[in-house]
């Protein structure tokens, strides 16, 4: 069996676990971390293709570096928003954030 398929399968599993966490977890921080997990699953795919793809290339790794940078920015902004919201609402539970409804 091809190693690539194993990596892809692992990435899919991680992605789905992250997705499940995003949908079901109440705590906003865990939701953010689950998003990071999903991004990592994607990174794993990129790096796996960089080695086992039809045209092995370093570009996949560079792309994953960019992804990581964006993810870091996202995490920083996310936590900042979380802290700001916490100040006004005294809660970090996602199910209490229903501003979109109004």
């Amino acid at each position: 069996m091809n190693m690539l398929a194993s990596y892809l399968t692992l990435a899919a599993v991680l992605f789905c676990i992250g997705l499940y966490g995003v949908i079901t977890k109440r705590n906003a921080i865990i939701v953010l971390l689950s998003v990071e997990l999903m991004l990592n699953a994607v990174n794993l795919n990129l790096i796996a293709f960089a080695k086992y793809g039809v045209q092995p290339s370093i570009t996949g790794q560079i792309f994953s570096l960019f992804t990581m940078t964006v993810a870091a920015a996202e995490a920083a902004v996310g936590v900042a928003i979380l802290v700001a919201v916490y100040r006004s609402r005294a809660s970090v539970n996602v199910d209490e954030f229903d501003e979109l409804r109004r």
Partner: peptide, 17 residues
């Protein structure tokens, strides 16, 4: 990221899942 999150956890009050 993880440390940032932990700081975030510390700055806010949490109920357990």
């Amino acid at each position: 990221v993880t440390i940032l999150m932990i700081f975030g956890i510390m700055m806010t009050k949490h109920q357990d899942e």
